[in-house]
Structure formats: C-alpha cells, structure tokens
Design a binder for these strands. Structure first.
Length: 1312
RNA sequence: AGGGCUAUAGCUCAGUUGGUUAGAGCGCUACACUGAUAAUGUAGAGGUCGACAGUUCAAAUCUGUCUAGCCCUACCA
C-alpha cells in the first residue's frame, strides 16, 4: 500500500526524515558509495561559532547544500569537511566585554594565558546552536571531523605557507613576505594601530570641526619655473589646502593633477597686504576669488580691504608645474637629501578639483596617498634619524611634536589629546590654530577657517586617530597582481559581474597585503629576529622549530626544549590528590614553558577573575545548558538545590549540587578539545569527594527523561556514598594553578607561550619572535591546505581535493575569503583555489531593510524552520530570487512556496496513492509499458518531464538554482497538476485495470519519481519523503532485483539524465494548441454564461496553414472532453467564411525596410484576404513604400483571422476559436443529466460513501428532468455507480437546486 | 569619494541577440467547477518599465548623465 495523508505538514516530514537519515547514516552513505576518483570538491567557508546563526546563514548554506547534493546525485563523491573559524578581533572583543576588561588589562588584571583560555571557550559558545541549525535545515556537512583554526596542526600549515612565501622571490629578488611600514590608523592615546574593522564600528566616524589652512608655498626661481615669473621681483606662490595643519612641518612636496589646468593670479596677500602671485587650479578660482573683484583697480587697494582685486595672468597644465622647487614652508628639519630631491611639485592622478586648491600638500608620514606619491617620485622622508639611522616622524607615538619642531615641541597635535581641563582653559589654543597663526604672521597663510568633516575616532579612547607610519609585515601581493587577474579570468563567477567588477577591478589595483595584527588571539607570525634586525629566521614547521630550539638550548638561551618533552603521564595510584596535582603541575609547567610562575595559590585576583567569568557565562548559556537549567532550577528537581556555572576552587562546574557533591557537566564544546584536561579535572574533583556526571548536548535536548533519570540515579549513589563516609569529605581542595578554564596539554603555539621561545642566530645572538599575529583572513585562506594539515599529513588527500570545484559564500567575502583563497593559491601554487564560486547577496527584511538587532527585524531561523519546515524555507529562498540578488525575506513568501509547490506536489502524490491503493497498483520496474503504447497525453507529460530534466541540468550546471527550481515549480503546477492530472482523473477512477489505466499510473509514477529527484537538492526532506513513499511498496522487490529503485533514499539514487529520445517537441506544440484552444473556448462559455456541464454541439477552428489542422486533430479528443463539445470543425479559405488580417513581422521586415518600416506596417495592416492569398501563393509580393520598392515574403507577415460573423469567438495570437452556442433540447437534457450526476455525487460524498460503493438513487419526478432521465438513464447510473435509478412522486431525500428554476429531492443509499 | 549590485503591477519576480498589445505568481474583485475539494479553473481591475538625454525605422532592452536603496573599499589634501 502507498501511504496516504490527510494534510501536508512539512515540519513532521522534516522530523521523520531527519530520524531516518540519522538511523541509516544516509549522508555518510551518499558520500561513501561514490568513487573517490570521481570527486567533486567543495570547500566549506568556516563560520565563527561565537555568534548565533541567523537566517542569512540558512540561505548561504542552502546554496552550498544544493550543489553538493546535486553533484552527489550525478555520481560524484562530494566530501564536505566542516570547519570553525576561531580567531580574530570579534572574539577578543567579546571576551573583553564578558570579562569587563580592556586590552590594557591583559597581562595586568588577568594573565595572557587566562585571556587565551577565555578566547578558546568563547569561540565555541554557540557551537551547539550551529550544530542544531545545520541539522534542522538539512545542511549536509561533516561536523565530526571539522578543521579548527586554533589547532596546532592548522597553525603549522599556515606557518608552512608563510615560509613558502618568505622564500619565494619576485623577479627583482624580493621576498614575498617582508617587513615594511605603512601609514595606518593609529591611536596615540591607546598606543596601538587600529584595523579598518575597528574604524568601521558604529560611532567611530564622527563629524568634527578642524582648522583648515590654505598655505602659500614660495616658488624658487629657476629655469623650469621661469615661465611663472613676469617680473624679476615677483613673489610667486602655490596654494595648498589642508585640514590637518599639524602635518605642515612635515611637508616635503606638493602634488598636482597632470591633466588639470592651473592659473596664476596676481593679487595681494589677504593677511599682510603684500603683493603676490598665486598658483591654483583654474576650476577652484571662484572659491577664493569672487568674480566681481576681478574688476577692482589694483591702485585702489589698501591693506585690510575686504575686497581684494585680482587678475588671472595666465593658465597652464599641471605637467608644467611638475618638477618645480619651492621653499620649505616650515623649516624645522631638513637634510641634504631633502634639499636635493624634496620640496618639489609631483604629479598625482588622484588629485581632484572638488575642494581645496587642486594642489595637495604632501606629508608622506601622515597620508597613505602621500607616501605612495613620494615613494614613486623618489622624494626622501622628512624626520629625525634615530640611532639606527631610521628616520622617525616629527610626531612621536604619543601624538606630540618632537623637540626638533622647536616652536611646538611637546605639544599634542590634536586638541583632544589634552586633558579636558586643559582644553577648557581660557587661552587654550589647538596646535592646528597655533600653526595657522604662525603662518599668517609669516605671510605664508592665504586662508584660515573652520572646516567640518567626518573623521575617524578610536573606539576605545574616543579620541581622533592619526594616520601614522607603523611597522608591519606584508605579503607582496602586488607582485602577483597580473597572475591573479589572469587566473581569475578562468574562474566561473556567479554572478559574473562580481568576478569582473568588484573582484576583478580590485585585483587590478591590488596593494600589498598587510598581514600584521598587534593582538593576542590568532596565528603568531613565525619569524624570529635578532635585536639588531640583521639576522632573521622564518619557521615553517614545528619540527624545524624544535630543531632550532635544540640549538638554542645548546647556546643556553632556553633551559629545555618543550617540543621534545613527552606529554605528562597519568598519575599512578597510591598518593594523595594534592601531591599528584603538584606533580602534574610541574610537568605541565615544563611543557608549556612558563615555569617559574608563582601560581600555586588561588590568589584574590584570580578568584575574582573566575567569579567574573562564571557570571558572564551564566548570561550566555548554550541552549542545552539552558534546557538543563530549566529542569533543575528553583529546586524543582526532587527539591535539590542546584547551582549553575559554579566555581569550585579553580574549576567551573556547569551545574553542581553542593549538598550531594555532584557535578553535572554538559559537553557544549568540541569534544576532543581537551581530553587530558577533562580527565585531570575529573580526578581532581573526585579526589575531593565530588562525583561528576556528564551528558552531551543532544542527550539533554533530545532525551531529557533519560537524562533526568540518570541524574536521579547518580544522586542516589552519592547519597549512599556520603552516608557511608565517616564524615563528608572535608579535605581541602587543591589550590589553583592557573588553568581552570582549560588548556590543551602539549605545547600551545599561541601567544604567550610561543613568545617564550628564544632561538639562536647563526652568529650566536638570541632571536625573539616578531610579536605580531597574522591577519585572520590568512587563516581562512589557508584552509585548502591547513584543513588537511598539508603538507605534514594527507598529501594524497590534498591532491585529490585541490582546487575546489565549487565554493559559495556571501558577497561580502569577495575581498575576504574569496580573495585570500585566491591570493594564497596563486602565490604559493600558481593555481586557482576554486573553479566555480557563487557569491550570494544579503538577506533583508521584507521592507528591504538590513536586518539588525537594533531594528528588531532579525528573523530567528529556528522559529522559521519549526513553523514552515526546512524545505519550504529553502525553496522559498532559492526560487524567489537569484542567490546573488538581495533577498527580501518575507514569511508570506514561504507560505506561498509551501502551498503552491509542496501543496500541489503533495496533492498529486495523494491522488496517486488513493487510486493506486484502490486499484492495487504497484509500480513494477520489470514490466513498464513502452511509451509508444501510451496515450497522447501520457507521452506529452513524459516529453514535458524530459524537457524539464534537460532544462534542470542546464541550469544546475550553470549554477543557476533559481532557474532550476522555477522550472520544476512550473512543471508541477502548470503541466502535471493542472493539465495532466486534471485531464486524466477519469482514467484513474473509471473502469477496471487495463492498459490505459496502467499507462496512466506508470506515467504519473514516473513524473513524481523524477520530480522528487530533481527537487532533492533544494528540498531534501520532502523529496526523500516522496521517494520513500513511492518506492516503499516495492522496495524489497527492487533490492532483490537490483533495480534503480532499490535505494533507501532519493539521495542515494542516480539522477535522471536528459534523454532527447523522450522529448517530442511536436507533441508539446500540439498540446500547447489544445491548451490554448480550451482556454479560449472556456472564456467564450464564461462570457455567454454557458456552464461547462452543458454540452455544446460544435467548435469551429479557422485554419491558416495545413500543419495546424494535423496538429489539432491529434489532440481533438482531449479538447472536446475538456470543453464538453461534441464536434470540431475546421474552416479553411475555401469556406469563404474566413476574414484574414495581416500584421507586419517587425523583426524580419525591420532589417529590410529600415526607416520605411512604419509606412509599410500601415500598408500591410490594410491587406485583405485576396492580397494575403496572393502573397501566400506567389511566395513574394512587391511593396512600394515612399517611392521605394521592396519584395516581401510570407514570413514577413503575421496572419490571423478576424471574428466570424454570427459566431461567438475569441482569439489569442494566431489562434481563433468560434463556438456554436445553440442549445438544443437534446443538449439541454444532456446537460441536466450531468447536473444530476453531479448532485448525486455530492450526496455520495456528503454521506461519506466509499468511492466504490454501489447505490440506489431515487429522484423526485420533476417535469424538468424527465427528458434527461429518460435519455441518459444508463449514463447517470454508470457515472454514479447506481444499481437502480428510479423516479418517485414523493420522497424523503436531499433537497437540491439543479439550476435557477429547478429544485428537487434526490435520495441515494447504498444498495444491498 | 571610488568600485559594484539593484530599480518593471499593491507585493515577489520573469522579460532571450533591440521588434507587434511588457508577462507570471501572490493579493484584490467577480464567476465557474466539484470522485484532488481547507484543492482547482476562468475572467477583470492594476504599469508614463526610477528620471532625463542620446543611438535607431523601432528601446524595459544599447549608450551617457542623474536619482534612490544596498554592499564592499576608503583619512583624498
């Protein structure tokens, strides 16, 4: 039997199928059954588990899942190794927030290792939520063995890659990994550089008002500049604007736009009244020189006048200015090199004339563009040399001028860096203003005014940032720019514009990758250097590091080599817990290389830290912990008081009953993370009289009663143990040792431990690690290698899985993961990292607004999936808009998907199951009726089905899931349900099982089966449910015979391949005619209020060409049945009834006629039957338009017929339908008979008779129905399964209205 | 500021290399059907295709400028 269902409830299907997948390991089987040689490689972009999963994660993971499942169905082995991104600033920030500390407190209030531990814990905070959403949404990814970026193995692979870059040389013999400095946002108050991420935090960009200054730079007279001088004593100056006057002492150049037109203006200096000639961009003149002042007489000008006369003397190009020298504006510091190559005019493409003067004041240490311009043009840096000969900027790291800037020495460059009370002083003046005033006094300022602009601030100190030169390690990505762009062109981007635009344009302007981060929680840069920086070493593996440490031990810089110390051994029995612990502590200290720390007491600081930590933890329970707490809180569990997140000396228990000394642990973290530590901790607790009971997340969430039962048993055991003990254990717990939050045994490659490693240089000097961490994006870009711990392990595996065939992430990853994958692959392996990439758009709310917690418009994915089911949610997301378009998420859309697609498919299946069960039909794979023995309708839907299969494959191969889903949707709704099933209904319920009926079942079965397969990638639950229902009755047979339907799950089957032999386009065209003709006929009936049950005599079809008639003839029975008409008659030209009209075919004629098109179209519209016939017969016709003569052919016309006079007609395009609407008494009677059948059927249904029940029908003897009953007696009986049909004068039946005039009583009862 | 995406019916979206009257679904209104029935069908109303200019016989489609929304990048002085 096929299962039948009352209603569609997708969440129940989800649950049923999830259970089945789990029980039968379907995901694993779907991967394992495919050959490894036939791999389709997918890379999972790792999510960070320190944030909760949102609805936007559901869409990106749906996209990934769809293509992985599709390729699996096509026979590929698609392994999907999951992963976790664990490093990075957001995690540091969250830890700091939870602990209530700032970066300054690291190393003071808490140790760096405590901080490190807290990061480890925090990073997996929501892992169980992620696991849960992964499962519930049906995303198949292997989470049993994920890659985790904080693991030593992962870090080691990153190091290996870094070393490869370190050793790789450019054509100029430069290393791909180098130390340099760039201009970066820097917060003097916090003493640290800031990332763009930090600058983009809300509230960081703020409008501030600064003193802007237009300074006058005096041009030196020399050959090149001679053209500027019209008089010998002329004072020619170039104007340059700045919003940061404090950078003016550091000015070394001016930059002009080569293509910009500049002007020399003769005027007077506004502050001193001295005559002067000024150079600035011509476009900027109006900003400084009001038009009306051009007319003022120079002789009349007096110093102090507001309106200053001016004359534009000459104009010239920026290129004319390039190379000119000027006098240093504020000559505090200079050098011979500067005198030679500095203080001159440079060209710069980026110069605009939108504001300022069209000349950019250039101070290389305080502007990235400035630095670039100076480097490109060989302008030396300005500053004070330190003892190593490096040139330091004129502003120190605290943000103050150095002593050499005598007038302003020691002054903070920004007013905000002074304490508030200093700023509040009456005569306080910002340094910017002081500088401006000095320039004014010296006749070097042209204009000083306040200027409001948006400027970034440090999120921690709230003070403005400086752009400041900082040391950093870089990857020389610019050297691989061309190769990256070239290889990028081989990648299939969806959408293409992201690859060529957003990504491609960016690659073309690629800068070196700044790898350095001054942080704690990340992959340490594996470079050690001597203090004099003359010797350095890049480490590429732990083994290499260990060898280097051995040398360092020999040289006496290290006491021992932590990498060669065996891991601590478990304690032997027989000694006290405290002793054991102490011993382990020693071992561990030695291992981790931080010996000598006095941490044998729980000091107050540490205790406070733990308390704060658990307090924070309580606010962020995992959902399993939350569930557990719901069961235990408030003494509701057998009146036992439980505490959660309770610190027991140095350890934190998830839940504890102090009364019964029972600790309850829930494994919320990655299980294998710290097995040694867990063991150690358990022993500790047990030694002090505690018992520990552990549960997993899924136990707590899915098997609560069993969990509580076990817990109760444990309590009983503890009760007895405690009662038997002479006295409850009061032994003091061993005191803490600084690892309560958890530490993996073995050496941890993170800071601070790694920083304790000191190596020895070839010349015997100590080398210390460069303190930087690397950009976390390097972590994620390394995943193709690091996930397999390549090249230290899995070399073969890696080879098979590189590069990826397919990846998908949000479009925001373009310059993130997409880039780092690409960059590392190109630079290290001269390869792409992925061949196809889908970058999906954002998920917005239904009003198109970005979802954010503050707006309260975030959608909870768990609730959505619980309510509508995963499939409806997935289907909606994919079918509604292309993945790369932004999705306006609206729950109504999910409802629509559910009703329209799943509802229709469900109904179709249910229909099939209902009748198949009645007829005892079971699909028999060995006995399938050949298509040529099936009806036109059957062959048509099969043809449509295989057209769908072809379209589907094309779309999926092209990474167009939306097109694929819409094609399926259209097939199911439009063709399968609304045409095939509707027209075939009668075949299923009428008569005995014969060939036609069998054909109907087999056809419908095949359609459902294939549709299930095609939908499986996008709707994995429903598709499997459908497949399993369809195949359950024959599963055993199929397995025995080894036939295609033997598989337990649709996800294990082989996808139906396109098969052109099953597609019959001519048949599809015929059926299209039928559908359109029916639609037209029904619309006539509707217009003339002729019910479909009322048969009509005749339908007329004008025939415009011979093939049309042949085509329609083939589907004639379907048409007649559908519209309830008795005959179909064709009208040809010969009938004389046809009135044709013609329209121009614009497409063909337009090319020929060009601008005469319009006139010709008018002429053609006037054609009559004869003209059209003449053209059709002759095959061509001369047409004269506007004096020109053209030859037109029949293809140039679109011929249609006009209404037939005296007939009810309707037309659609070239098809016209006329209906004979004469209702004869016979037709009337037949119509009534059908009405009667209908009413009787309704009664059967009302009375809940079985579909197969035989009945006796009694009709009231109403005069109106007599002819119908008389003539259609047998018909009525047959249709209603009546054994008897009798008339009675009076009866106790159902009162039924037959039509407006006729009402009568009808009785139907089951015949005995 | 630069780069990119988007803009078509009340809503969500199609619209192939420019070509006749710009389509679909939902929603709304009316009607029909009734052995799929909390299903289905038919019809109607609803559009200056974001704005302006250009190319063309012909533009939702190609080009340019602009506007709005969003994303990424960014101290332009």
């Amino acid at each position: 039997m096929y299962r039948e269902f009352k209603h569609l409830h997708l969440p129940s299907i989800d649950a049923e199928i999830l259970q089945f997948w789990d029980d039968e390991q379907i995901f694993k089987k779907s991967v394992d059954q495919r050959p490894a040689e036939n791999a389709f490689v997918f890379y999972e972009g790792p999510p960070s588990a320190n944030g909760k999963p949102g609805i936007h994660h559901v869409i990106s993971r749906t996209v990934k899942d769809i293509f992985c499942r599709y390729q699996t169905l096509k026979g590929h082995r698609v392994e999907r190794k999951g992963g976790w991104d664990t490093h990075g600033l957001p995690i540091e920030l969250q830890v700091e927030k939870e602990l209530g500390i700032t970066k300054e407190d690291i190393g003071k209030k808490i140790t760096v290792e405590e901080y490190n531990q807290a990061c480890r814990t925090t990073v997996m905070r929501f892992k169980d939520l992620w696991d849960d959403i992964t499962r519930k949404m049906g995303y198949w990814v292997d989470l049993d063995d994920p890659y985790i970026t904080f693991k030593n193995e992962y870090i080691e692979s990153c190091w290996w890659l870094l070393k490869r870059l370190y050793e790789k040389r450019t054509a100029n013999d430069e290393s791909f990994l180098y130390k340099g400095f760039t201009i970066q946002p820097y917060s003097p108050a916090a003493g640290t550089g800031l990332s763009t991420h930090e600058l983009n935090m809300p509230g960081c960009y703020r409008d501030v008002t600064d003193f802007s200054t237009v300074a006058m730079f005096k041009v030196k007279r020399e050959d090149k500049s001679d053209f500027l001088f019209d008089a010998n004593d002329e004072d020619v100056r170039i104007l340059a604007w700045t919003t940061t006057p404090w950078t003016l002492p550091s000015n070394v150049a001016l930059t002009v736009g080569p293509g910009i037109t500049y002007a020399k203006v003769r005027t007077f200096s506004p502050y001193t009244g001295a005559p002067v000639s000024l150079v600035l961009a011509k476009d900027r003149l109006p900003a400084y020189f009001p038009e009306e002042n051009a007319a003022l007489a120079f002789e009349d000008y007096k110093e102090g006048d507001k309106n200053i006369p001016f004359r534009v003397e000459k104009t010239f190009q920026g290129t004319d200015l390039v190379g000119l020298h000027f006098e240093q504006l504020m000559p505090y510091v200079s050098s011979p090199e500067l005198e030679k190559d500095g203080f001159r005019v440079l060209p710069g493409d980026w110069v605009t004339t939108e504001d300022g003067t069209g000349v950019v004041h250039t101070a290389p240490y305080f502007g990235a563009d400035d630095m670039r311009a100076c480097k490109e043009n060989g302008v030396p840096m300005i500053g004070v040399p330190d003892d190593k000969g490096r040139i330091l900027p004129l502003v120190d790291k605290q943000g103050r001028f150095v002593p050499e800037v005598t007038d302003f020495a020691g002054r903070y460059v920004k007013a905000e860096y002074y304490p508030a009370e200093v700023q509040a002083e009456k005569d306080f003046k910002p340094t910017d203003l002081l500088i401006a005033l000095k320039l004014k006094d010296e006749n070097k300022a042209f204009r000083i005014e306040k200027y409001k602009h948006s400027y970034p601030h440090c999120w921690r100190t709230d003070k403005p940032v400086l752009y400041y030169p900082l040391d950093s390690w870089f990857i020389r990505a610019s050297a691989a720019r061309e190769r990256m762009a070239e290889l990028n062109k081989t990648i299939n981007w969806k959408p293409a514009s992201t690859g060529s635009g957003r990504f491609g344009v960016w690659l073309e302007n690629l800068q070196d990758w700044n790898l350095s981060r001054s942080r704690y929680w990340g992959v340490p840069l594996p470079i050690w250097r001597t203090e004099d920086e003359n010797e350095e070493l890049c480490i590429g593996s732990i083994e290499q590091l260990s060898q280097e440490v051995n040398k360092a031990v020999a040289a006496g810089f290290m006491s021992e080599n932590p990498f060669s110390t065996p891991p601590p051994t478990p304690p032997q029995g027989g000694r006290g817990a405290v002793e054991q612990a102490a011993e382990r502590r020693d071992a561990k200290s030695a291992v981790s290389g931080y010996s000598g720390r006095p941490s044998f007491k729980t000091d107050p600081e540490r205790w406070k830290f733990l308390k704060d930590y658990v307090r924070a933890n309580r606010k962020n329970p995992t959902s399993a912990e939350k569930d557990m707490w719901e069961a235990l809180r408030d003494k509701q569990f057998h009146d036992i008081k439980f505490r959660r997140q309770h610190a027991i000396e140095d350890f934190i228990a998830d839940f504890v009953s102090l009364e019964y000394r029972l600790v309850v642990e829930i494994d919320g973290d990655i299980h294998d993370l710290q097995p040694e530590y867990d063991k150690y901790r358990m022993e500790f607790l047990e030694a002090s009289g505690y018992s520990v009971i552990r549960f997993t997340n899924s136990e707590v969430q899915n098997e609560r009663p069993a969990v509580l039962k076990k817990l109760w048993q444990a309590i009983q055991v503890q009760k007895n143990t405690l009662a038997q003990a002479e006295s409850p254990s009061t032994a003091p717990l061993p005191l803490g040792e600084g690892s309560g939050v958890g530490l993996k045994t073995g050496f941890d490659l993170h800071r601070p431990y790694i920083d304790d490693i000191i190596l020895v240089s070839p010349s015997g000097k100590p080398m210390r690690r460069e303190l930087d961490l690397i950009d976390v994006w390097f972590d994620s870009g390394s995943m193709p290698y690091a996930q397999w711990h390549y090249p230290f392990e899995n070399q073969e595996k890696w080879k098979q899985n590189y590069p990826a065939d397919f990846i998908a992430e949000g479009v925001d990853q373009t310059r993130g993961w997409f880039y780092t994958l690409h960059a590392i692959a190109v630079m290290c392996f001269d390869s792409v990292a992925y061949k196809n990439v889908v970058s999906n758009g954002l998920v917005l709310d239904k009003n198109g607004e970005k979802m954010s917690k503050s707006k309260g418009n975030v959608v909870n994915p768990f609730e959505t999936i619980d309510e509508y089911g995963a499939d409806a949610t997935r289907w909606y997301m994919i079918s509604n808009a292309a993945p790369w378009d932004n999705l306006k998420f609206d729950e109504n859309g999910i409802v629509e998907s559910r009703n329209k697609f799943f509802g229709t498919l469900f109904n179709t299946y249910n229909f099939f199951a209902l009748y198949a069960n009645l007829d005892g039909f079971k699909m028999d794979e060995s006995n399938v009726l050949p298509y040529n023995k099936r009806s036109e309708l059957d062959r048509w839907i099969i043809s449509k089905l295989y057209s769908l299969v072809a379209d589907y494959h094309a779309a999926m191969n092209d990474y167009e899931p939306t097109k694929a889903c819409r094609a399926i949707e259209n097939f199911v709704d439009e063709h399968l349900s609304n045409w095939y099933v509707r027209l075939s209904r009668r075949r299923f319920w009428k008569g005995e099982m014969g060939e036609d009926k069998l054909a109907a079942y087999q056809t419908l079965f095949e359609c459902l089966m294939v549709v299930g397969q095609l939908s499986a990638p996008a709707a994995p639950f429903f598709a499997d449910w459908l497949y399993r229902n369809l195949t359950a009755p024959i599963k055993a047979t199929a397995k025995a015979n080894n036939t295609p339907l033997q598989h337990d799950s649709v996800h294990l089957t082989d996808l139906t391949q396109p098969d052109p032999s099953k597609v019959d386009k001519a048949l599809e065209k015929r059926m299209d005619h039928a559908q359109r003709i029916c639609s037209l006929a029904l619309s006539i009936r509707k217009k003339d209020k002729l019910r479909v049950r009322l048969p009509l005599q005749k339908i007329l079809l004008p025939v415009l060409d011979g093939t049309f008639q042949v085509e329609v003839e083939a589907v004639k029975p379907l048409i007649l049945a559908e519209i309830n008409v008795k005959e179909l008659e064709y009208i040809t030209d010969a009938s004389g009834l046809l009135k044709k009209s013609a329209k121009a075919n614009f497409k063909t004629l337009g090319a020929k006629l060009g601008k005469d098109m319009k006139a010709a179209a008018a002429q053609i519209a006037e054609f009559n039957n004869d003209q059209i016939a003449a053209l059709e017969q002759a095959g061509s016709l001369a047409l004269s338009v506007n004096g020109a003569s053209y030859t037109i052919t029949p293809e140039d016309l679109v011929v249609s017929t006009e209404d037939l006079p005296g007939w009810a007609t309707a037309s659609d395009g070239t098809i016209t339908v006329a209906l004979d609407v004469t209702v004869t008494p016979e037709l009337q009677a037949e119509g009534l008979a059908r009405d009667l059948v209908n009413r009787i059927q309704n009664i059967r249904k009302d009375k809940d008779f079985n579909v197969t029940d035989r009945v006796v029908v009694t009709l009231e003897r109403h005069p109106a129905i007599l002819p119908a009953v008389e003539q259609f007696h047998d018909y009525i009986k047959g249709e209603t399964l009546a054994t008897d049909l009798v008339l009675a004068d009076a009866l106790d039946g159902e009162k039924v209205e037959l039509n407006d005039e006729v009402a009568l009583s009808i009785d139907a009862r089951i015949s005995l």
